[in-house]
Design a protein around this nucleic acid. Structure first.
Lengths: 348, 348
DNA sequence: TTCGGGTACTGAACCGGTTTACCTCCGGAC
DNA sequence: GTCCGGAGGTAAACCGGTTCAGTACCCGAA
């Protein structure tokens, strides 16, 4: 019973009758190895069931073969957001075939974001990172650059960024929503937006206001932190205001469902008294009552393309800006014709 | 301008006037280093801002300093389940201070679970894994053992397991729910369960049936895949049955919300005609109308304890079985007194 | 015939730590 | 005075790959 240790490149070299170097060359498809020698080496490797040790490779080539995703929203908010899961599934679609691995880190109130990035970089745990939830004047690009990591941003940054970006034109989605409402005769619409500091949420908000203006209808927006709680509070505030909107567009499905709850509590009928539109088109939205009309983006595809782009960047390719397909609007029961004045009067 | 390369242990050794070995010893708190020498070494390291290279350490000690979590549910289902995010946040609470990292892998229909585990193990990307969603006769324990990984299971396995487990007695939560309904006068209750193959969902189901029997009330359970879609279908089936239940306990909040949607569609009032109880006590459940009564477990704590336990196992400690605090029941508006017979007759 | 240049391959250095074998010195026991 | 054991420390091997400097050989051109 000899001490059984992992087979190494030396074993393969011995078996194929060549040097370690040749084995390495053969495996990495480098020139300078005769075809029959290469075949013999691969054959030997297969016979021994040998796979190069990632750790050793990692040490000598100075790469980790892993990329990171730092999730920065507060746990409660993110816990409810299906977007991330779809995104991660998409990333994995790409990584798993590329032999890469996804390192997930969570920044919490007690553990600052920059510390988290720094930790990943100092230990060289990852070769690159995916930056989500871009903020206005986001300092992460500078941080990540200082740390010497590759990166890809989800959405285009508003500051100079040396990194590739992959984006979805969610403004187009918002426009679809507003146009849909305008066609249904709504003249007073509102938007429950995410934090102003987040680029995509402020972009949606502006798109909303612009689209409403273009349609010649009155618009009002309220800012939240994306949570169901604030979604509900915002809805209450809007409905208590003097110019009560007849339709509300939410920046995610989660808040839209909470808005539905508020309507129920107030005895309002959706969509007869109030139309509601969500964002993300989650599965749950299809099964609430009434089913949510929602803007649909393909988060999984987004993740996959982002992953591919990041790997290209890690491989040294020049940055690119990729634009994905425009969102669509899934129309369901939560939107309907604007209430008539008659109806409005009767309620008063 | 000299070629600036990372400072290494040799630089520190030179600066402190000792050998590489001593630096290593000093850093790992090993005996055989005089106190003042150790101090000098640490001082030198600090001056140079040196941190040992994880990659080099990884190669020589044969550890990855990372653990894995393979998410096996279908993306759509998991996308909506807030449980995982809280769990991950808890894991990270522990890992981030231990210098560990979480590798997240997603098994999809196209990429089988065992392949995913195998990939992580072959490349020695992780030292251990966290096993969630245990199934009846789960083959992952054998697989993981064969792969030589450490592990911790969430919940106690029904097969022989050499691994530590961390569990929550969700049966107790189900009992709270049933007792609550019994006290409200419900005599016909139903349960919308997750897949029978999943240990925790079948356990909840049995607990439900047992608790109903103990309370002397009629119980019926339907199996689903945890998705909103199947939650809705199950609800429809239950309400169309001849012995329509007056209350339904769901195995997660997500399905409970879908159930609420079905009730709305059918024109049933919750809780007057039907009481609904969820599981997980998610944020969203508090803002639907009526707010969900739900069984609350502390997923984040669960994650943290599981992480700690896994690290102990990686460190060679003997397996333990840890039981966390029992769930509680958050009572809200979705449960109320059972409809009276009179009311039942009037409906007919 | 000689020389140049490309191809195939080898051996050793290297990545940056950990670990082991061994050496020296010192104090205490006999 | 000698012997022993432990504390403090060093040099080199080792983890398992990649990469670079060289060497041997062959072919075609001058």
């Amino acid at each position: 019973m000899t001490k059984q240790s992992r087979t190494t490149i030396a074993d393969v070299a011995r078996r194929a009758g060549v040097s370690k170097g040749s084995v390495s060359f053969a495996l990495n498809d480098r020139p300078g190895v005769a075809p029959e020698t290469r075949a013999r080496i691969l054959e030997a490797a297969k016979e021994l069931g040998w796979t190069p040790s990632l750790r050793a490779r990692s040490l000598s080539v100075g790469k980790s073969f892993a990329c990171g995703l730092v999730v920065g929203r507060s746990p409660d908010v993110i816990a409810a957001d299906p977007f991330f899961h779809s995104l991660i599934a998409g990333i994995e679609d790409e990584f798993s075939v590329a032999g890469q691995v996804l390192v997930l880190a969570v920044a919490t109130p007690g553990r600052h974001e920059s510390v988290t990035y720094r930790g990943l970089a100092e230990d060289k745990r990852v070769d690159g990172v995916i930056l989500t939830d871009l903020r206005a004047g986001d300092d992460r690009m500078a941080l990540v650059r200082e740390l010497g990591l590759a990166a890809v941003t989800l959405g285009v940054a508003d500051v100079d960024s040396p990194y590739s970006s992959v984006s979805v034109d969610d403004s187009a989605g918002v426009r679809l929503a507003v146009r849909h409402l305008a066609e249904l005769g709504h003249r007073r619409v509102a938007h429950v937006a995410g934090p102003d500091a987040m680029l995509h949420s402020s972009r949606r908000k502006h798109a909303f206001e612009q689209a409403a203006q273009d349609a010649g209808i009155r618009a009002h927006a309220v800012t939240t932190d994306f949570s169901a709680r604030e979604g509900a509070l915002a809805t209450e505030a809007l409905l208590a205001g003097e110019l009560r909107p007849t339709a509300i567009v939410y920046s995610n499905d989660h808040m839209a469902v909470a808005g539905l709850g508020v309507a129920g509590r107030l005895g309002l009928s959706v969509p007869d008294d109030l139309s509601i539109i969500g964002f993300d088109d989650t599965e749950l939205g299809r099964y609430v009552y009434p089913a949510l009309t929602s803007v649909a983006t393909d988060a999984r595809e987004w993740g996959a393309v982002a992953a591919r782009t990041l790997l290209a960047a890690v491989g040294g390719e020049a940055p690119v800006d990729i634009r994905l397909a425009e969102p669509t609007l899934s129309v369901r029961g939560s939107t309907g014709p604007a209430p008539t004045e008659l109806r409005g009067i009767r309620r008063a």
